[in-house]
């Protein structure tokens, strides 16, 4: 049985936050912890992507939200923010999956859904709050809630490393 577990959610949320920083860095945007650490909702448009993951010992949902600035700054030429947020969500959860695999936890991914609006704010179920990051172009939020088996621990990287990392190519 999988149950809400704040300790596991906090660890997985930390991994997701690290994955988000690495992801935006790969596209030339350096994110840091936002001053104050809270999400300031405003009339500015926010785009968000949500994606689920499920495995035998862990399941959850990850939401990536961003003001337009970081999306425009990270998006390849010709791309549109409302498409790019979906792809970034996909790549974020893909990176999270890689980190979980390195810790012996297997999950499978859904596909992202995207929404946009102004004055949106997260309403967490438990005590955990989303990770809020910032760059010169705006703010980014990563929100993850998870349920896990009671025996699940995420202590250190698994001794068997993953087969590859970003940009790697395998020819068969």
């Amino acid at each position: 049985m999988l149950l809400e577990n704040d300790a596991v959610s906090a660890k997985v949320g930390t991994l997701a936050g690290a994955a988000c920083v690495e992801l935006f860095d790969a596209y030339g945007v350096r994110l840091v912890d936002a001053p104050g650490g809270s999400w300031e909702h405003s009339d500015e448009a926010v785009l968000s992507g949500s994606m689920g993951f499920v495995g035998p010992r862990l399941r959850g949902t990850c939401l990536l939200a961003s003001s337009e600035g970081p999306l425009i700054a990270s998006c390849p030429a010709g791309g549109r923010p409302k498409d790019w947020i979906g792809e970034l969500t996909n790549q974020l959860v893909g990176r999270l999956k890689t980190k979980l695999l390195a810790r012996g936890v297997e999950v499978f991914l859904s596909t992202p859904i995207v929404l946009t609006g102004a004055r949106i704010r997260p309403v967490p179920r438990g005590l955990l709050t989303p990770t809020v990051l910032a760059c010169a172009e705006g703010h980014v939020l990563v929100w993850l809630e998870a349920e896990s088996g009671q025996d699940l621990t995420l202590v250190s990287e698994h001794p068997s490393p993953n087969p590859g990392s970003e940009g790697d190519i395998f020819i068969f």
Binding site: Q91, G164, E166, G167, I169, F170, I171, F172
Partner: peptide, 8 residues
């Protein structure tokens, strides 16, 4: 498949 490339 002939190959597998990891994004980005």
């Amino acid at each position: 498949a002939r190959g597998w490339m990891i994004k980005p």
